[in-house]
């Protein structure tokens, strides 16, 4: 048995945030006397991740995912509890530790917008002290894999969101980190681009055996990359185990979206109608009944368009939370 790469024990992070009522009077009052609320962003979570694992870290907004990632990458000091990453205590922020991890945040950029990506790569080389031949080999390998040969010469501000994310991933992985913290790496990207990023992460994991902890709101990301998921809600750990087990348990429904040719119709006898407006209907159907119901709708209604979808991960997560007795 290998020793785990990430080991978290009863980790908690509490913030003190000033609170005040709305209005000028309250604002004036808060200038002199502030009231604070304690927000328990992360509350006593524990888990272990082995080398080479790709783990999906799920939860609704504000669940504490980012806070946990920040504690693991040394940005935040835990309020209580301990964490070890690669045998280091992240909050001590030793250079040897930081040189082996990376942090990617889909909604933020670490590139200089005025510089071409190639220059940012060069700066990254200097920061991590990567020997030149190794650097060039890695860089060219990534450029090839992500097909960004032309893009890396343009100033980053001229790139589209998807293109920028590609170079963002490259810059974050130039030093070949052993642990990747990816916070919503595909947020806002179109489906093709999401796939490219995903495949790249998968490839990186295969080639280097790096450990990946990933948060994403896109089910497809998690399904493609993560065998195991950790679900947290309100800072507490709700589920830690195989993705398949989670899905089977909580994704008992599919969503059918129908657009009618003539605009009107009644669907309530097929199943629960989630949404209806101007000829568009969204239904929630138990998983096993989906083929039947789909056939019936097609036979009985004047259908212009019909799609069957897995519910978004948010819905599944929401279901996880509505069921309180989940054993971790």
């Amino acid at each position: 048995m290998q020793s785990p790469v990430i080991e978290v024990n009863n980790l908690s992070k509490h913030y003190r945030v000033p609170v005040r009522e709305a209005g000028l009077k309250a604002a004036t009052k808060s200038l002199f006397k502030r009231k604070y609320n304690t927000v328990k962003a992360v509350e006593s979570i524990s888990f272990k991740i082995d080398p080479g694992e790709v783990v999906g870290f799920l939860g609704p907004n504000g669940a504490g995912k980012t806070t946990t990632l920040k504690m693991l990458s040394g940005l935040l000091f835990p309020t209580t509890g301990t964490s070890m990453v690669l045998g280091y205590q992240p909050s001590r922020r030793q250079a040897e530790f930081l040189g082996q991890i990376t942090l990617v945040m889909g909604n933020r950029s670490q590139m200089s917008w005025d510089l071409p990506a190639l220059d940012s790569f060069e700066l990254q080389r200097a920061i991590y002290g990567i020997p030149r031949p190794e650097f060039e080999k890695t860089r060219d390998e990534y450029i090839e894999l992500l097909e960004v040969k032309e893009l890396v010469r343009k100033p980053v501000r001229n790139l589209s969101l998807g293109e920028r994310m590609k170079v963002e991933i490259i810059v974050a992985l130039l030093h070949r980190p052993k642990v990747l913290f990816l916070d919503e790496p595909t947020i806002g990207l179109d489906v093709t681009m999401q796939r490219r990023i995903r495949l790249f992460v998968e490839e990186y994991n295969h080639r280097t055996g790096a450990t990946v902890l990933l948060t994403s709101h896109y089910m497809a990301d998690v399904e493609a990359l993560c065998k195991r998921v950790i679900v947290i809600h309100n800072g507490k750990l709700l589920f830690d185990g195989d993705l398949a087990a989670l899905l089977e348990r909580f994704s008992a429904f599919k969503t059918i979206c129908v657009t009618l040719a003539n605009g009107n119709g009644s669907f309530s006898h097929y199943g629960e109608v989630l949404n209806q407006d101007a000829g568009h209907f969204t239904l929630r159907i138990p998983r096993e009944k989906t083929p039947d119901i789909t056939a019936r709708i097609l036979a009985e209604q004047k259908v212009e368009d019909l799609t069957v979808e897995d519910p978004p991960i948010e819905d599944i997560i929401e279901k996880v939370f509505s069921q309180k007795s989940v054993e971790a």
Binding site: L103, R108, Y128
Partner: peptide, 18 residues
Amino acid sequence: QDGTLDFALTKPVDGQIL
């Protein structure tokens, strides 16, 4: 302000110097 300092603080170089 916008939180991108995270990147500078996770580099293996003294933050203040960087």
